[in-house]
Simulated assay, not measured.
Amino acid sequence: MSAADEVLDVVDRDDRVVGQAPRGEVYARGLLHRCVFVQARDAEGRIFVHRRTASKLVFPAYYDMFVGGVLGTGESYAQAALREAEEELGVRGLAQPTPLFKFLYEGPGGAWWSYVHEVRCELPVDPQASEVDWHAYLTREELDRRVDGGEWAWVPDGLEAYRRLRAHPESRL
């Protein structure tokens, strides 16, 4: 099954499930759905940053400071956060990511409910080749320079989540 065929819950502006549709249809029709963002930090507190593969359906070859993705039908935000973090980082045995806040992203690429989490990953990472083209751990200062410098194309939803995370009182940024 291709990513476009994966069935997602369609939600309303209050984040209530109102139906299901294949991912490709959800994107094509601009239907609201659910997504998780997980900021992974290593033992030194550096932030995992990566470039998405060129084959991604949304924002191909863009940089991101989160791992994550869409929720499958019936999946909770917590389940998706752990699943996506382990898949994209290529690890097993992560602690459950800590939920921080949820917001409705509306911008380039569409609109979706986005739940931001963070997790400590002290395991050696082996990022999923179909998701991650390049990766490194950056300090917050290095990441902020990359974000503010404009040299890298950042996924707009991740950039919005990062800006909100920097302002969030429970964030360890």
Rank of each mutant, 00 (worst) to 15 (best):
R51S: 07
L32M: 10
Q79S: 14
A43P: 09
V58Y: 03
F37I: 00
L32G: 14
V36P: 00
R29D: 13
D64F: 01
A78E: 15
R34C: 12
F66S: 07
A43E: 15
E25R: 15
R52Y: 04
T53L: 13
M65F: 10
Y27M: 12
R83C: 03
M65P: 09
A40E: 07
G68L: 06
A85K: 01
V58E: 09
L57A: 11
H50F: 12
A54C: 05
Y77E: 01
P60R: 06
D42V: 03
P60E: 07
S76D: 03
T73Y: 07
F66N: 10
A43R: 15
C35N: 14
F37Y: 05
R46L: 00
L32I: 12
V67M: 09
A54M: 04
L32D: 08
F59P: 00
L82R: 15
L31D: 02
F59H: 14
G72Y: 08
Y27I: 15
R34S: 11
H33G: 05
D64Q: 11
L82Y: 12
A78N: 14
D42Q: 08
G69Y: 07
E84I: 04
V36L: 06
R51W: 03
E75V: 00
I47T: 14
A43G: 15
S76V: 07
K56C: 10
E25S: 12
A85S: 14
R46I: 02
G68P: 09
A43Y: 03
V49R: 03
G74Q: 01
G68Q: 01
G72M: 08
V36T: 10
S76R: 02
R83G: 03
L32H: 08
A28E: 13
G69N: 05
C35T: 09
E44F: 02
V26D: 01
M65K: 09
V58D: 09
T73M: 10
V49P: 03
V70P: 04
G74T: 00
Y27N: 13
R46E: 09
S76C: 05
R52L: 13
V70W: 00
T73K: 14
G69K: 04
G74V: 00
E75F: 01
R51F: 07
E86V: 02
L82I: 04
R34W: 02
G45T: 12
